[in-house]
Amino acid sequence: MTKRELITPAATKDLYLPVMAEITDVRQMTPLEKLFEIRLPGGADLGHRPGQFVEVSLFGVGEAPISISSSPTKKGAFDLGIRKVGMLTEMIHRMQPGERVGIRGPFGSGFDMAKFKGKDVLVVAGGIGLVPLRSLINYVLDNRADFGRLVICYGSKSDTELLFEDERRLWERDPRVEFHLTVDHGSPAWQGRTGVITTLIPGLDLDLPNTVACVCGPPIMYRFVLLALKSKRLPEENIYMSLERRMKCGVGKCGHCQINGSYVCQDGPVYHYPDIKALREAL
């Protein structure tokens, strides 16, 4: 190892220091999920891309990586869709508008929307995978002329766990959106489609070379969605996926989020499928 010139500490950034931001709105989406609107001091722009995440802090409880759920086109505040699943998210669920949380970020790669210009966008969202993908969906809708078709496949365990009800109803009616919904197990009242998310894919009529697929869902979902997309003959280089790992520091140091040699907080969580195909721990 050759000795390297060390940069001066003064030239470093505040990697671990959160900015205090205000919760401006809280909406209960399901018994487990709430949507929080967060405002940075002075309404500053978070400056994120769809698919990026922030680290949310509650002092005394800890920090957790949370996907950003609003499009960068939304100004003055951003949204975090949070499932109550651990200590920190449990505490956040008890918080009210006016209370403050710490925010670091945005972190990670996100979707490079400039690359998707002129393309048809296929969104494949399983469960809370819709949370980060809602950022991308709304970005496409707010820049509608820049993209081709917007096809959304959304699968959920049950109809009682469906997210973003108001927006979902808009997407269902919006002639600019092709919205497909299925649930694994419907309640007796459910009148929609029943079946796992992969059952939506064979029936899609896609302009394959011109379609990019953006996939996010629970770990188990990816390989089955991939199989479905491949048997559809969607080229591999048209597939992007957002992966969940334990992004603890967000700045490529702590090691927890590594997939083989790749730091998810730096190279992901959104990956171009050909880049992670060889990473055995990815899927």
Binding site: M1, P9, L15, V251, K253
Partner: peptide, 25 residues
């Protein structure tokens, strides 16, 4: 000593970290 030089790489590459660099310098 080589191990320290490798850590230097890890804490300078990407996002240089102040805490490490302050002590190391």
């Amino acid at each position: 000593v080589h191990a320290v030089l490798k850590l230097d790489h890890n804490f300078v590459a990407g996002n240089p970290e102040r805490n490490y660099l302050t002590r190391r310098q």
